[in-house]
């Protein structure tokens, strides 16, 4: 369970990233956060694994305030929260298997990982994860030889290998075309249901949010302006979140093709 209690974040340059956020995310939920760019979606998601540190309030993950965490606690927190990025963030010159095994870093000792001496189970797990996103035939390809969609699937396999309790996905489909976007979202949703991993996804496409989310949180200017199950959401909700009328480019489209 993730609980934001009066969380605020002011960046060193004075920008307010988050303003008095109060949100509780229950185990197993698939939450989509929507909002325009600059609304604080990324800051929200990155606070949960402390890639950024909120400056006020308290943030509880499994009933522990993570804002007080220092190095070794932080490593444990990050080991149980996997992350998927907009730009995939793979090591381009390393092969797919090595990239996926990087998901085990938090579980593996420094020496063992430096000498590539992973446990047999870990390598098995990495291969299993690649199979689950149907990319096991690319196991020895270099990451930069893959297409965008394939790279994002590898990064999902990396997160799976991590065996996290939470998955955070920061605009995972923003760099992909519509059919590939749906494929990636389908994998994320499937993992959420099958492994019961709480998943929080940042999106700015309205139709995708509606299609995959259990619950939608709307953000504007660092504040939560909507929070409710997807059944309560209508077009006017989005207009409220975005502060303007809905346009063509707020939709990803292509739902029928995949």
């Amino acid at each position: 369970m993730i609980e934001f209690k009066n969380v605020g974040l002011v960046y060193p340059n004075g920008t307010e990233g988050l303003k008095n956020i109060n949100v509780t995310i229950n185990d197993g939920e698939f939450v989509v956060i929507v909002g325009l760019s600059g609304a604080g979606k990324s800051t929200f998601i990155r606070s949960i694994n402390r890639l950024v540190t909120p400056t006020s309030g308290s943030l509880l993950v499994d009933n522990q305030d993570i804002l007080k965490y220092r190095s070794s606690n932080l490593r444990k927190l990050r080991t149980k929260t996997g992350m998927v990025f907009q730009s995939y963030n793979l090591v381009k010159r390393s092969n797919v298997l090595k990239n996926v095994l990087a998901g085990r870093l938090g579980h593996t000792g420094t020496l063992r990982s430096i000498f590539n001496a992973y446990k047999k189970e870990d390598i098995g797990l990495a291969y299993e994860s690649l199979k689950r996103v149907n990319i096991e035939e690319k196991i020895y390809n270099r990451a930069d030889e893959l297409s965008g969609g394939q790279q994002q699937r590898v990064s999902i396999a990396r997160v799976l290998t991590q065996q996290p309790k939470y998955i955070l996905a920061d605009e995972p489909v923003a760099s992909l075309d519509p059919p590939t976007s749906h494929q990636v979202m389908t994998y994320l949703k499937k993992i959420n249901k099958e492994d019961n991993i709480t998943t929080i996804v940042n999106l700015h496409f309205i139709d995708m949010a509606m299609e995959y989310a259990d619950r939608i949180i709307g953000m504007r200017a660092g504040e939560v302006v909507f929070d409710g199950p997807v059944s309560e959401v209508t077009e006017s909700t989005f207009e409220e979140i975005y502060g303007r009328s809905i346009r063509e480019d707020d939709l990803r489209g292509g739902a029928d093709e995949s």
Binding site: N49, L51, S71, R75, K76, R78, T79, T81, G82, M83, F85, S87, N89, L90, V91, K92, R93, S94, K98, A102, G103, L105, G106, H107, T108, T110, S113, I114, S155, R158, V159, Q162
Partner: peptide
């Protein structure tokens, strides 16, 4: 970006350097 990803998956400083930095600068 890869360094951030390694950090996010729980890697410590040495692992981040070894896995995300070294491959990028080795050539």
């Amino acid at each position: 970006n890869p360094l951030e990803a390694m950090r996010a998956s729980g890697g410590n400083v040495f692992q981040v350097i070894w896995y995300a930095l070294i491959p990028q600068v080795l050539p």
